[in-house]
């Protein structure tokens, strides 16, 4: 282990970890938006929306995220979508993880007892009110942990944008492996930084989950 080298290059990795963190946060936000819309579509009364929701989930979960990213970044200009690598990374990964989150959110909503909605309706609530005031508050508690699993996968998934040259942790590690021929050292620094991000996120999710418990 060449610790002198590690000390010399680690500032670059800290900077790269910052980019990874930004990617993770933005992707999570976009994923949650897409996931909520997807779940709403899949649970809609209108068959058109149900079909669109199912098609969204099926395509994005049925093909590799890397291909989706390449399609957006390299193929986008052909259909008039010009994005820089960072934007393409956030949008590509966000829409991808949104498909997984769709299923997580839908699963939590479906898991709430039917009687709850019926009770809400009986009390004179509209369909939307029953969803808003009865179902969602309960379902939201159920979603936290599985959404945490999605977010954990998403953080590791941000490494894919290295393939479109976004200077984040994995890209930086790859570059330094190329220039120093010290793969183990570079893996160690970037690995530790990834694990700090993932560990902190995991703790945050666990805290949220505890706070949201009723009993």
């Amino acid at each position: 282990m060449d610790f002198e080298l590690i000390l010399k290059v680690y500032p670059y990795f800290i900077e790269a970890a910052w980019v990874t963190l930004q990617l993770s946060v933005l992707t999570t936000i976009l994923g949650l938006v897409c996931g909520s819309l997807g779940a709403a579509a899949r649970l809609s009364r209108l068959a058109v929306f149900r079909f669109l929701g199912a098609a969204y989930v099926s395509f994005f979960r049925g093909t590799p995220a890397l291909i989706q990213l390449f399609l957006l970044y390299f193929g986008g200009p052909q259909v008039g979508i010009q994005l820089d690598a960072f934007e393409a990374g956030v949008i590509g990964l966000g829409v991808n993880i949104g498909a997984y989150m769709t299923e997580t959110i839908r699963g939590a909503i479906v898991a709430i007892d039917k009687g709850q909605r019926e009770a809400g309706r009986t009390l004179g609530m509209s369909r939307w009110q029953a969803m808003r005031y009865v179902i969602l508050p309960q379902a939201a508690r159920l979603m936290i942990r599985p959404l945490g699993v999605n977010i954990n996968a998403l953080i590791k998934g941000t490494a894919l944008v290295a393939a479109i040259s976004v200077v984040e942790l994995t890209y930086t590690a790859q570059r330094f492996i190329g220039s120093t021929y010290k793969p183990f050292e570079m893996f160690l620094i970037s690995g530790v930084l990834y694990m700090i991000i993932i560990y902190a996120t995991g703790r945050g999710i666990a805290w949220l989950d505890r706070r949201a418990r009723i009993v």
Partner: peptide
């Protein structure tokens, strides 16, 4: 705790 891509490298 680390990405597959990094492990492949």
């Amino acid at each position: 705790g680390t990405p597959l891509l990094l492990q492949l490298f």
